[in-house]
Design a protein around this nucleic acid. Structure first.
Length: 757
RNA sequence: GAGCUCGUAGCUCAGUUGGCUAGAGCGUUACAUUGACAUUGUAAAGGUCGUUGGUUCAAGUCCAAUCGAGCUCACCA
């Protein structure tokens, strides 16, 4: 029963991690009649290694390990996410390094290339999760793009469509006319730019604008209704110069009185603020910039120009007609394409939307009823605000990497659909089908298809019209929508899809899940969507608790970022200090949902604690050779023995109360730091520094009864303390447990949660 | 502009519903120790709990104001 001089965590941590999985300790014990405990792992990006934030899965692992020891059927289910935009972004960067672009490939080829790229990297994150010791049931691992998941995701879309919750509408998207595609906000760079602010006379009122080339798309002038200068003009008309179009003057509080002239030209087709004002007042949307980047719907002298040329020409014309009041230098930031650095135009592009109001109402009812609760409670307010102000959800993305929206258009019946494809000679073609149908067959378009844009009112079907034949039949005039689902549309159904909704045994047993734990930054994106899908599909919330964890920052409290160079790799920490030390550093002395400064001092502290555990165990085990360990509590316990047992009982209830999350009055729930602090103090100061010193003489003395009482107390209290510590620091506790004569179970991870002594 | 969080020892942070001489880790100082201890143990120094006012028998904790820091959302055409 000799232990090495030092704990060799680089040896035992990976060994135990594999051993746990190989022996199925993390598969749920479904024989128990206790209430199941379920956590679905928030899926990390399948394509990227873990970062420091992922180490916070330790919060979930602590809960899961404790529940497992309580004897509850406990499931911690792993999976990975295809991370649509981010992954395609990374892949395209790699393409760019080789001088290629996504526009060189048809969508099917591109999809396959990204798929292969992700497939190569998929193992990295999963092996890291294992190395960190998370007690996941790998036999149930899922991936967001696997067939059974997609089947449910598509079924949800169809159900929502049948319920009348799906519609198409035009919205402004960040569109790069040079690259011919839309981007998400994440993909847009901003550049400070010195431009000009032109003051232009519209008859009774003068406006200020940075974009005079869009005046042809103006549909109104807006002023602030509290603006004494202008409020009497509301209801009158103004005149767009050059084209002499009459437009109404309206009042809207979004207009800043202090900016420019205090009067704003409303151009819903080309500006996000204007779009919203236009929505409020029921105004038309006019597009004067085509997706090709050329001017359209403009006076003849501008036709076909690019916006920059049109701006110059418009200024000249305004000067000529005397409408230009003045121009001033103005600094602002403009959105530019991350790839080609050209200016991003907000353009009207048809998008897919989900009506959220009826679903959100039900979610709020569940919140009110306490069926789902938020910890810490201050985030309840945030969640409600997101729910109450949730606009209809744009679920479509103009990217390839993701589940393609299951809607099909009949091309011959809707020839105004615009298609972009690579023709059989490898050339990029964009055109309205009606204009190009003489030159290209539907098959040629389909085979090289990159994207299509169907006008908003184009009819569609939600099943492939000729199942299995849609990509081959010469007669088939249908093309599938090329937009893909927003990543959150599929990951929002994660608690359902991973458990095999609607009729699997797992779903019946483990849904609703117990806790979801994430950082607050995706409360609106992900947690809210899971609530919506859960309630919509099952009538039940997908989890009982929403637990918000902390953000990992560097040792000085600064946010980690690549540009600052202070990003830490959790696996490097594990190599240097051990996974237990990392887990300790993340939990010790931390208030719920506050920042976690992760510096070397903290990690050293964790490693030293591991060493301390080890040495205490060496001391106790060193005496099992010459003193017989009683199997029953001996009668001759001293005051010292009774005192340490009493202190153990106090710590036991303190640690246990962290996990009593169903108790409404329990102020200690989820207070991991308090439990760990108490354990640390007890094990190191009370037990090791005080009690062990008290026993040394007795263990070495001639009084066998006293020695046995001391050894029994040492061994019993220590074994139970290790069990209390196990959810927090699983490796060292398991490694020691395997050497204990008091070991009653194959693994400490499945041993019963200790009781009072 | 709206909202949220924070300001406690040299550093990083705890401090549950207000209640004994305000705590931890790291750091500092002194002494001890080859011990179960990549050291550890004992002890010490170090805080007007941002500032001001209020409620209370009692305030780090509640309220108001103020100063400072950080974050989120919305953003100026």
């Amino acid at each position: 029963m000799e232990l090495d001089k030092l704990p060799q965590f680089t040896e035992y941590e990976p060994r135990l991690s594999t051993w746990w999985v190989d022996n199925d300790f993390f598969k749920p014990n479904t024989n128990s009649t206790k209430k199941p405990f379920t956590i679905i792992l928030p899926p990390p990006n399948a394509n990227a290694p873990l970062h420091a934030g992922h180490a916070l899965y330790v919060v979930e692992d602590i809960l899961v390990r404790q529940a497992r020891m309580e004897g509850r059927p406990t499931l911690f289910l792993p999976g990975t996410d295809h991370a649509g935009i981010e992954t395609q972004f990374v892949f395209e960067k790699k393409l760019a390094e080789k001088g290629r672009s996504r526009l060189d490939f048809d969508r099917e080829t591109l999809y396959k290339m990204i798929h292969d790229f992700v497939h190569k990297n998929r193992g990295i994150a999963t092996s890291q999760l294992k190395r960190l010791g998370f007690s996941l049931d790998w036999s149930r691992e899922k991936y967001t793009l696997q067939d059974d998941i997609l089947k449910t995701v598509n079924a949800t879309f169809k159900q929502m469509h049948d319920d009348g919750l799906v519609y198409r509408d035009e919205r402004l998207v960040n569109y790069c006319t040079h690259c011919g595609t839309g981007f998400s906000n994440l993909e847009v760079d901003h550049k400070d730019s010195i431009g000009k602010l032109w003051h232009i006379n519209y008859g009774p009122i003068t406006i200020a604008t940075t974009r005079p080339e869009t005046i042809y798309a103006d549909v109104a002038i807006a002023v602030n209704p509290h603006d004494d200068r202008y409020k009497d003009l509301i209801g009158q008309t103004a005149t767009v110069p050059i084209i002499n179009k009459k437009i109404p003057i309206i009042g809207d509080e979004a207009v800043e009185m202090d900016f420019g002239t205090g009067a704003l030209k409303i151009t819903p087709g080309h500006d996000v603020t204007d779009f919203e004002i236009g929505e409020r007042h029921g105004l038309d949307r006019i597009s004067v910039i085509a997706r090709t980047g050329n001017m359209q719907n403009v006076p003849e002298f501008l036709e076909g120009m690019f916006p920059r040329q049109a701006r110059k020409a418009t200024i000249e014309k305004l000067t000529e007609v005397g409408a230009l009041v003045k121009e001033e230098v103005y600094e602002h930031s403009v959105a530019i394409c991350y790839r080609c650095k050209n200016v991003i135009e907000p353009l009207l592009v048809p998008q897919w939307f989900i009506k959220v109001e009826s679903i959100v109402e039900k979610v709020i009812e569940k919140l009110d009823a306490g069926e789902v609760q938020v910890f810490p409670t201050r985030f309840d307010k945030d969640l409600r605000r997101w729910l109450e102000t949730a606009p209809d959800w744009n679920i479509s993305r103009q990217i390839v990497w993701g589940p393609r929206i299951p809607a099909w258009y009949n091309l011959t019946e809707n020839p105004l659909i615009e298609v972009t494809f690579v023709d059989k000679n490898g050339k990029n073609v964009t055109g309205v089908y009606n204009d190009i149908k003489e030159d290209y067959s539907i098959d040629e378009i389909r085979n090289g298809l990159q994207s299509l844009v169907a006008p908003v009112n184009t009819p569609y079907v939600t099943e492939p019209p000729t199942p299995g034949a849609e990509t081959t039949s010469l007669q088939n005039p249908y093309l599938q929508e090329t937009d893909t689902f927003d990543t959150w549309f599929s990951s929002g159904q994660w608690p359902l899809t991973t458990l095999g909704f609607p009729d699997s045994d797992d779903y019946k047993m483990f849904y609703p899940t117990t806790v979801i734990d994430t950082m607050w930054d995706i409360l609106a994106f992900w947690v809210m969507r899971m609530l919506m899908f859960g309630v919509y599909k099952t009538g039940e919330v997908p989890f009982e608790w929403i637990h918000m964890h902390s953000r990992v920052v560097d040792g000085k409290g600064a946010k980690m970022s690549k540009s600052k160079g202070n990003v830490v790799n959790p696996l490097e920490i594990v190599e240097t200090y051990g996974a237990d030390a990392l887990r300790f550093a993340l939990m010790f002395g931390i208030a719920p949902a506050s920042d976690i400064p992760l510096g070397d001092e903290k990690l050293v502290g964790g490693r030293n604690f591991v060493t301390k555990m080890w040495n205490v165990s060496r001391f106790i085990l060193g005496h099992t050779e010459n003193i017989e360990l009683p199997t029953e509590p001996p009668s001759g316990l001293t005051e010292d023995d009774k005192s340490i047992i009493e202190k153990y009982n106090t710590v036991l209830s303190k640690v246990s109360s962290i996990f009593e999350i169903d108790d409404a009055d329990n102020a200690d729930k989820f207070q991991f730091s308090r439990g760990l602090d108490a354990l640390y103090d007890f094990m190191w100061n009370e037990f090791a520094s005080v009690y062990i010193e008290q026993t040394k003489d007795r263990l070495a003395g001639d009084d066998t009864q006293s020695a046995q009482a001391a050894l029994w107390t040492l061994m019993t209290v220590w074994t139970n303390s290790l069990k209390l510590l196990h959810p927090f620091m699983p490796f060292i506790t398991e490694e020691i447990y395997q050497h204990l004569p008091t070991k009653n179970d194959e693994s400490i991870s499945i041993s019963p949660w200790p009781e009072r002594l």
